[in-house]
């Protein structure tokens, strides 16, 4: 067997898990298990206000295009580390079948990032409350408080948390001055561009996509574009069976 990146495997593991569970419950043929309806977010009572969400229309996502990733990594000073062991990613593209399970018909690469779950298991594992869910639904990291115990990284079922095993500045060629880097010894992940949202801008991946394949908006607002898309099309989430309630959706 080829040597795999662990995180890549975690992403793939959803498929195996689903196959196992599907076999046991007979749900695999039924198909409804992984498909998300608007009930996935709207049916939770007492949840109002802002909850940022993202939707990828992978039909419009060109093969081989990585503009969103490049833009994200440049804006947030994500170091470019070649080795799989020390790699840091906020966003990446993976085989859709492996990422989203067997309901995803296509094996084309689709973008993936932190799901900003409504029930984040990373936040439940963090001993210092350094990774937490904000009132606007963004799962944020307080880099000033993180002690680097990597519990969040261990407990994220999507493998979307990265750790700075070495000094990130050494691997940063052309930093963006407006956004800080991280230091060796803390974890990091996608922040849903909360730094840009506060200035009234859209996330940098959304802006960078030439095809307009990424929608971003308030999941709790019935009139938002993302809700309109969610209600009009069939969407998938990553590993919804874990009960983490991701805020990132995919149209295949």
């Amino acid at each position: 067997m080829m040597k795999n990146d662990r995180r890549e495997f975690i992403r793939k593991a959803g498929m195996g898990l689903l196959a196992g569970m599907g076999a046991a419950s007979g749900l695999l043929t039924g198909g409804g298990f992984e498909r998300t309806t608007s009930a996935a977010w709207a049916a939770v009572p007492g949840e109002e206000g802002l909850r940022w969400g993202m939707l990828f229309d992978t039909r419009r996502c060109p093969e081989g295009c990585t503009l969103c990733i490049e833009s994200c990594h440049h804006t947030h000073n994500v170091p470019d580390i070649a080795s799989l062991e020390g790699k840091i990613e906020w966003m990446h593209k993976e085989n859709g079948r492996e990422l989203l399970g067997s309901l995803c018909a296509s094996t084309a690469a689709v973008p993936a990032l932190c799901n900003h779950c409504a029930e984040p298991s990373c936040a439940r594992a963090c001993p210092t409350g350094s990774i937490f869910r904000r009132t606007d639904g963004i799962v944020a990291i307080d880099y000033h408080r993180c002690v680097g115990c990597r519990s969040c990284m261990q407990s994220c079922p999507y493998g979307e948390v990265s750790f700075n095993w070495s000094d990130p500045r050494a691997a940063l060629k052309n930093p963006t001055v407006e956004y800080p880097t991280r230091q060796r010894g803390v974890v990091e992940k996608c922040n849903f561009c909360s730094d840009r949202l506060v200035r009234g801008k859209k996330p940098s991946c959304v802006e960078a996509c030439p095809e307009g394949a990424i929608s971003f908006g308030n999941l709790n607002d019935p009139s938002s574009e993302i809700r309109r898309l969610l209600e009009s099309s069939e969407t998938l989430q990553r590993k919804p069976e874990l009960g983490t309630r991701p805020s990132v959706f995919y149209i295949i």
Binding site: R7, E85, G86, K87, W165, S166
Partner: peptide
């Protein structure tokens, strides 16, 4: 130098 001296990593 941090954890670069250990065998730990993303795996």
């Amino acid at each position: 130098d941090g954890f670069v001296h250990t065998g730990m990593g993303n795996n």
